[in-house]
């Protein structure tokens, strides 16, 4: 808002143009999202079943009360939380190590980085099917390698204790390259002078990483963490293809349980109530991310947001 005032008056005069250009997109987005959200808010107060002939009744907050007592709901929240936490810590750790390693190898760096990125740009449907074949008990390469090492073979997605870690492996494979690429971009934007000074001071490599590099990277790290958190929270596709939530409910995340209630059991009202829990979580996460992404008007960002953190 401050920035608007500093703008030449001509810019504030363009209000009509601004409204006309922003309106079509905004109207479409409102029709496509606000209406459905309001409609499902209403549904969430009813006991509507999709294929039922009985007219739906208004049940107030009963669906929400039922949610609180639904063990499967809590376990799906637990699965979603466990998934998100492992995704963020493991992918960030390995992604950082890989980014630091790639940084040391300037030759062919961009080519290697793009090659490594292939998993992240594939459809999750394609990725899931590749892993389904890799996970195959008798003919899959993973168990073949375990056999070579004289280790016991694993039922990757059929064992209740292993199913979630197996999905995490697929997500790790698909998204760690993406994390690596973001952190590598962050490293490239760091000011070299800081490190020169530290080196002259006789700091060790580890000290430089710990006290210079990581603090300067914190903004890129924050954005990466939030993007992966949201991705992990939304995870649906690989569950749909690889485990369908099973065995039992071992891999039923919030999004997937929501789908099961709505599209398998047709409990539309109940499913809508669950959607609202997701919506609230996403809104909170989006609030956080907005803080990291917004920049002042018309002021070109210093190369990467990181540079601001350096000041």
């Amino acid at each position: 808002m401050m920035a608007t005032r500093r703008r030449p008056s001509r810019w504030s005069g363009g209000r009509r143009f601004a409204l006309l250009t922003v309106a079509p997109a905004t109207i479409i987005l409102i029709v496509l999202s606000v209406f459905p959200l309001l409609y499902s808010l209403r549904l969430s107060f009813t006991d509507q079943q999709l294929l039922s002939l009985v007219p739906p009744r208004f049940v107030g907050l009963a669906n929400y009360a039922q949610l609180l007592q639904d063990n499967l709901f809590w376990s799906s929240l637990g699965v979603a939380a466990a998934f998100a936490l492992s995704v963020v810590t493991v992918q960030l750790g390995v992604g950082l190590a890989l980014a630091l390693a790639l940084y040391r190898l300037p030759r062919y760096q961009q080519f290697i980085a793009t090659l490594l990125l292939i998993p992240s740009i594939l459809s999750s449907s394609v990725a899931s099917f590749q892993w389904r074949s890799l996970f195959d008990y008798s003919s899959g390469p993973l168990n073949y390698f375990l056999g070579l090492l004289h280790l016991p073979l694993l039922s990757w997605t059929a064992d209740p204790r292993l199913a979630l870690p197996s999905l995490l492996l697929v997500d790790f494979w698909q998204w760690t390259p993406f994390v690596t690429l973001l952190l590598l971009a962050g490293l490239h934007a760091l000011p070299a002078s800081v490190f020169e000074a530290a080196r002259v001071d006789g700091s060790s490599s580890w000290q430089i990483l710990r006290y210079q590099t990581l603090p300067l990277l914190r903004r890129v790290i924050a954005i990466t963490v939030i993007l992966r958190l949201i991705g992990a929270f939304k995870v649906f596709d690989i569950i749909y293809v690889l485990t369908a939530g099973g065995p039992g409910s071992a891999t039923e995340s919030l999004a997937f349980y929501n789908y099961v209630q709505g599209f398998r059991y047709f409990s539309v009202g109940y499913s809508a109530a669950m959607s609202y829990v997701s919506v609230i979580i996403v809104i909170v996460l989006a609030r956080v991310i907005l803080r990291y992404m917004e920049r002042p008007v018309g002021r070109p960002a210093a190369d990467v947001p990181v540079a601001e953190a350096a000041v």
Binding site: S33, A255, N258, S271, S275, V279, V282, I289
Partner: peptide, 13 residues
């Protein structure tokens, strides 16, 4: 927010 909305959350409506 829309960019990050899980499609399932608005799936039913």
């Amino acid at each position: 927010s829309l960019l990050f909305m899980p499609p399932v959350a608005i799936g039913i409506p």
